[in-house]
């Protein structure tokens, strides 16, 4: 039992890291970004490229099977991936925004970009799974009968501290407050002199940064595949909807629930259907609460 809770929480950390970007584009740019899975994958693959360039393996810190090379690769990978995403925004999404395209047109463009992104990864990195390193990982018993590896614990810790950082960013800095203002009411925000373009830029950068961190550690715990982000997309959307879409804290709560439901579906022998089980549970919850768990009534 405890084992499944632990597994669920590990999955929840990567879902939550990914869902931050999804939630931010949803609230500030106002569309469901179907290409966000590819942001995760691209970030993870750039980390792999940097780690390979450094050529010192991924190092280790005590019992944890990753060290400075992987941690150094993160900011570089975040920078490169953000630049790509900002370029895509300038070439596609900004053009569509300027034409006052509906959110469905934006979703459709994202859908096309998602397909392109996966194919580009396959083109440059190959379709077969990749790994940062091949060491055999140790696990230890955290609770009686529930094992977890030090890497998984570290990833959970990193995710948790990233969220605490995000909380302070959104509540204490000018840019964070501007973001919340634009999410609340874009017209009113602009009237009050908030530079919306700057807000949009930082929305993409922060979403990409979280996605890159999530993708890199997902790749470290499991493996890197071109579809790694796309396969996570449904779970991230589920977390977003469950949390009430408009609410970043709700998204984190949603991610934890989705992770737990996912590992419970494995526990009751439905591992082949796990994505479907998560999805059906979400649909049932939405039948009762169409606005999500922490969402406000429209």
């Amino acid at each position: 039992m405890m084992q499944f809770v632990l597994n669920g929480l590990v999955l929840a950390s990567t879902i939550a890291l990914g869902a931050v970007g999804l939630s931010m584009t949803y609230n500030i740019l106002r569309f469901a970004n179907f290409a966000h899975g590819e942001v995760i994958a691209i970030g993870a693959y750039f980390s792999l490229a940097v780690v390979t360039l450094i050529g010192a393996g991924v190092g280790s810190i005590g019992p944890i099977a990753f060290g400075w090379p992987l941690l150094v690769s993160l900011p570089i990978s975040i920078f490169v991936t953000s630049m790509i995403i900002l370029l895509v925004d300038a070439l596609v999404f900004r053009q569509l925004r300027n034409k006052n395209a509906t959110r469905i047109t934006l979703i459709m463009a994202a859908f096309g970009l998602s397909l392109m992104g996966r194919s580009l990864i396959t083109l440059f990195a190959g379709g077969d799974p990749k790994y940062y390193e091949f060491s055999i990982r140790k696990v230890f018993e955290l609770f009686p009968g529930a094992k977890i590896g030090p890497d998984e614990l570290a990833v959970m810790g990193i995710a948790a501290s990233a969220f605490i950082g995000l909380y302070f960013y959104l509540s204490r800095t000018i840019m964070g407050k501007s973001m919340r203002a634009v999410a609340e009411n874009p017209v009113l925000a602009r009237i009050n002199g908030i530079d919306t373009r700057q807000v949009i830029r930082w929305t993409w950068i922060i979403g990409t940064a979280f996605a890159t961190v999530g993708g890199t550690f997902l790749g470290h715990i499991e493996q890197l595949r071109p579809e790694m982000g796309f396969d996570l997309l449904l779970l991230m959307f589920a977390a977003l909807i469950l949390g009430g879409a408009g609410n970043l804290y709700g998204t984190v709560l949603g991610a934890i629930l989705v992770g737990l439901i996912d590992s419970m579906s494995v526990a009751i022998g439905l591992s082949a259907y796990r994505a479907a089980v998560v999805f059906m549970v979400i649909m049932l919850i939405l039948l009762v609460r169409p606005q999500g768990l922490l969402g406000e009534k429209a």
Partner: peptide, 26 residues
């Protein structure tokens, strides 16, 4: 179930249903 939801929720949920149907087929 899904048409009562907001329009982009419809996109997300039909996406999920297609994946669920494929899982059943598989």
């Amino acid at each position: 179930v899904t048409l009562r939801l907001r329009e982009d929720f419809l996109a997300i949920s039909t996406f999920g249903i297609a994946i669920s149907i494929q899982l059943v087929a598989l």
